[in-house]
């Protein structure tokens, strides 16, 4: 129960961070907090008698890996954007 509330809090905090921050890197970190919150909700709402549901663990593992792929791509996109915008401001 405590875990669920923490999960929701992390979800909301991450969502706030994604909306409020202007820098894309900070958005990305907040996005990771956001997904962590969802995974925490997922596992804690399905845990019965201190045993986590193996199906849920497998699904969350899938989700973790997918999130990793997305954030790796996002970071490279941020770098490319920073590099190109520097290039353009040099030309002007």
């Amino acid at each position: 129960m405590l875990f669920i509330i923490t999960g929701v809090a992390l979800f909301v905090l991450g969502l706030l961070g994604v909306i409020v921050h202007k820098e894309f890197l900070r958005k990305l970190i907040s996005l990771n907090v956001f997904t962590s919150g969802i995974f925490l909700i997922f596992v804690s709402t399905t845990t019965r008698e201190d045993i986590a549901d193996p199906i849920v663990i497998a699904l969350v593992l899938t989700g973790l890996v997918v999130t990793l792929g997305a954030s790796a791509f996002a970071m490279m996109l941020i770098r490319a954007y920073a590099k190109e915008s520097i290039k353009e401001s040099d030309n002007v």
């Binding site: 129960m1 669920i4 509330i5 929701v8 809090a9 969502l15 909306i19 709402t45």
Partner: peptide
């Protein structure tokens, strides 16, 4: 406004999720 909404989202969602009967 955003913080206000976020707070109520937090309250509402935790209320619903902690009262889920599976």
């Amino acid at each position: 406004l955003l913080y206000f909404l976020a707070f109520w989202l937090f309250v509402g969602l935790s209320f619903i999720l902690t009262n889920i009967n599976t």
